[in-house]
Design a protein around this nucleic acid. Structure first.
Lengths: 222, 222
DNA sequence: TGACAGGATTCACATATTGTTCACAAAATC
DNA sequence: GATTTTGTGAACAATATGTGAATCCTGTCA
């Protein structure tokens, strides 16, 4: 797994690089956008992390350039939490957005989540905790044994998977799995969650309840 | 079965080689395109796996060179999921295309599937479990005895065969076997599946139902 | 033409699996 | 402690699939 990180502040870069390496990634460093673009052509990257404020070529330009030729997941680092920047970034094609100061843990989680999401598009076998999903075969494996999920349970799991570590409201889940024109009991979902939970317990994955909102799927430390 | 793998990243190459050997293939390794072309002339290959990004001679050039003299199945490994590359690759004569990161299981399946497909073109005898299919003769043999399949059953079996371990929706099956303009009863397929199942039971092959989706053909351990 | 054969399709019913609802329990929040 | 939200088990409803038999085609052949 190759990661490219472009950040002009060396101290911060060093810390992030240290953590990335600890997680087993191969890290390519750049101290500005220009260097980043050079490095980007050196090796196929699996994820790119760009600081917005950089000398020579800034993060936005760099992002725009990369997007001309690649769909690699891009995370932007920025000092301000302004909604404007965020929207601007997504328009340019950034996939995620981390506001400084951030914890390494947070950054790592975003990195993993993006890699996981992009892996889904290309490949058919997803993996997290003790669970593997073979999308093409429509199969879920836990500890080598097949997990027998009903269609709704499978759909739910896939939806959570794609939105790992994101609180999903009941409405969103209903809209996605049941369709926006569903008008049955909102509590139906609870029952499915219950059953899915009981099937994936001890898997290293978990569906947490977010009171007043809905649910959140998380993969505990790997 | 001889396999040639050209991949410059040694770690990755080692892993793939390990799996290929485990599957019983004779493996020839190359760390770049030039070496690959050399090796390719050393022995008759049954399948070639080429990384796109390689020093000296890259995967595309290598693919083009090989195609000048051979119709061996070629799988390209690439880091980006761009449709452009894919199209480009197929134009050059690549047969399949695996995007990094990939699981070994996935790669092995593609390898097997290609070998199977090319076998179909040249030798016309496919084999799995206790079933042999002589494509040219349009015959299916199980345990030495001929299986009498109706045309639809034969088509179904071939379609499943080509999509081993993949969940196929009813729609896909209908489109492929009956044509996209079929508008009869969707349940017709069930009856054919039933009959095919009863004919291939005890063959080591099995048509599993994937509830809410369709069917999945699997070959139990060989 | 008309009987026949093989296969394809449809249909009705049996079964199995899944989805929904509801009432009450448990937990969190106010 | 009252109120709101969520968890849970069981009953029931709805769906999807399996299956056998009847029917419909579409050729063939006398």
């Amino acid at each position: 797994m190759n990661v490219l990180i472009a950040e002009d502040e060396q101290k911060l870069r060093d810390i992030v690089v240290k953590y990335l390496k600890k997680e087993g990634y191969t890290v390519f460093e750049a101290e500005n956008g220009e260097k980043a673009l050079e490095k980007f052509n050196e090796a196929p990257m699996d994820i790119v992390i760009l600081d917005v404020m950089m000398p020579v070529v800034d993060g936005w330009s760099c992002c725009r350039e990369i997007r001309k030729t690649s769909e690699v997941p891009i995370i932007m680092l920025t000092a301000r939490s302004e909604e404007n920047d965020r929207v601007f970034g997504f328009e340019l094609g950034a996939d995620d957005y981390v506001t400084k100061p951030f914890s390494n843990r947070e950054l790592m989680m975003r990195v993993k989540s993006l890699i996981r999401r992009s892996a889904k598009d290309n490949e058919t076998v997803l993996e997290a905790g003790k669970i593997k999903i073979n999308v093409r075969a429509h199969r879920v494996i836990m500890d080598g044994k097949e997990l027998e999920l009903s269609p709704k349970e499978y759909d739910l799991l896939m939806f959570f998977w794609e939105n790992c570590d994101i609180a999903l409201s009941r409405e969103k889940i209903i809209d996605k799995i049941w369709g926006y024109d569903y008008y049955g009991d909102m509590r139906t979902i609870d029952t499915h969650i219950k059953r899915l939970r009981s099937k994936i317990k001890d898997s290293g994955c978990e569906i947490q309840t977010v009171r007043g909102v809905g649910y959140r799927f998380v993969v505990s430390e790997e």
